[in-house]
Simulated assay, not measured.
Amino acid sequence: MIDREPPRRRGIPLRAVVPNAVTVLALCCGLTGVRFAIGGEWEKAVVAVLLAGVLDGIDGRIARLLKGSSRFGAELDSLSDVTAFGVAPTLILYLWALQHLPGRLGWVIALANAIACALRLARFNAQIDADDQPHKKLGYLTGIPAPAAAGLTLAPLYVHFWLAPSALDDLAVRAGVVAATSLTVAFLMVSNLPSYGWGSLRLRPSWRLPALAAIGLLAGALFTNPWPTLAIITIVYAVSIPMAINSYARVKARTGRTIDDRTNSADDGIQPPP
């Protein structure tokens, strides 16, 4: 009697759908932020975009954990990022501030920010399988990622919520600050400047417990005083950008010297140290 193999079950496994569902939720949160902005509910609009950033940060990790990564998921993630972190923050800031600039200048600046986000993600997709990525090889990112860019772009709103009444109550001042912030972030997104990625960060073993305690305190601060906490986080991240440029230059120089030393040792017939 011949044993027949059971027929294979056709269809997409659920583990491949779960991360895609999280990505779609991030997309919905970004668009919901626009809906809140149209209704003048600015705090809810910002929270919706920030929630989209949280969901975007975990969908890839869920995909790797469930072994559900796919090319479809990568493309969907990019489209979601353009909407949630390019289009949504742009429309929120246009309705809140940029529309008060003279003429059509505010809309031009809004378009610049959204286009920069789309170009950054297009560059990321084009280079996803490329071998020649010097920043990625050393654990750094090229430019700032879209979720971080959205957080930086919305920084004037954090400050306004925190310090209100403030100078940002004046529509001209508000529009000028938002325009300068948006153009700066747009440049950082499409630039070739290195920025910190998870692979470039290293934590000493002795710092593990203090770091966990700091994360707990940060979470508590976000729940009790979200706007000053977000403003401080934004400032720290902005300061980290020139630090990342300097750090990358040092790492690149050290790596280059190591390669040159090994090459010279090999030319001299000397076995380089491991």
Rank of each mutant, 00 (worst) to 15 (best):
M1E: 12
D3M: 13
D3Y: 13
E5Q: 12
P7K: 03
R9W: 10
L14C: 07
R15Y: 11
V18W: 08
V18S: 09
V18T: 09
V22S: 12
L25R: 08
C28E: 01
C28G: 14
C28W: 02
G30C: 05
V34E: 02
V34Q: 08
F36V: 06
A37P: 06
G39W: 01
G40N: 00
E41M: 11
E41K: 09
E43V: 06
K44P: 12
A45K: 00
A45H: 10
V47Q: 14
A48T: 09
A52P: 13
G57K: 07
I58L: 09
D59G: 04
I62W: 00
R64Y: 07
L65K: 14
A74L: 11
L76W: 04
S78V: 07
S78G: 06
L79G: 15
D81P: 10
V82T: 10
V82D: 01
A84L: 00
G86A: 04
G86L: 06
P89W: 04
T90V: 05
L91H: 04
L91R: 07
I92H: 11
Y94H: 15
L101K: 08
G103H: 04
R104N: 15
G106P: 02
N113H: 15
N113K: 13
A114P: 04
I115L: 14
C117Q: 10
L119V: 12
L119P: 14
A122H: 13
R123P: 12
F124R: 04
A126C: 07
A126P: 06
I128Q: 14
D129A: 13
D129H: 12
Q133C: 14
Q133L: 10
P134E: 00
P134N: 03
H135Q: 10
K136F: 13
K136E: 14
K136I: 08
L138Y: 07
Y140K: 06
I144D: 06
P145N: 12
P145Y: 03
P145E: 05
P147D: 01
A148G: 12
G151R: 05
G151F: 05
G151Y: 03
L152Q: 00
P156E: 02
L157D: 10
Y158W: 07
F161P: 10
W162A: 09
L163N: 06
A164Q: 03
P165M: 06
P165K: 00
P165C: 01
P165T: 02
A167E: 10
L171N: 13
A175R: 07
V177R: 05
A180E: 02
T181K: 03
L183D: 08
L183R: 01
A186N: 03
M189F: 10
S191L: 08
N192G: 15
L193I: 11
L193M: 07
W198R: 15
G199D: 00
L203D: 01
R204Y: 11
P205Q: 04
W207G: 03
P210C: 08
L212W: 09
A213F: 04
A214D: 03
L217E: 01
L218P: 05
L218C: 04
A219W: 03
A219T: 11
T224A: 15
N225D: 15
W227S: 11
T229H: 08
T229E: 08
L230I: 02
A231D: 00
I232P: 08
I233R: 02
V236I: 01
A238W: 04
V239S: 11
V239G: 08
I241D: 03
M243N: 11
S247L: 01
Y248D: 13
A249H: 05
T255C: 13
T255D: 15
T255M: 11
R257A: 15
D260K: 14
N264W: 00
N264I: 06
D267H: 13
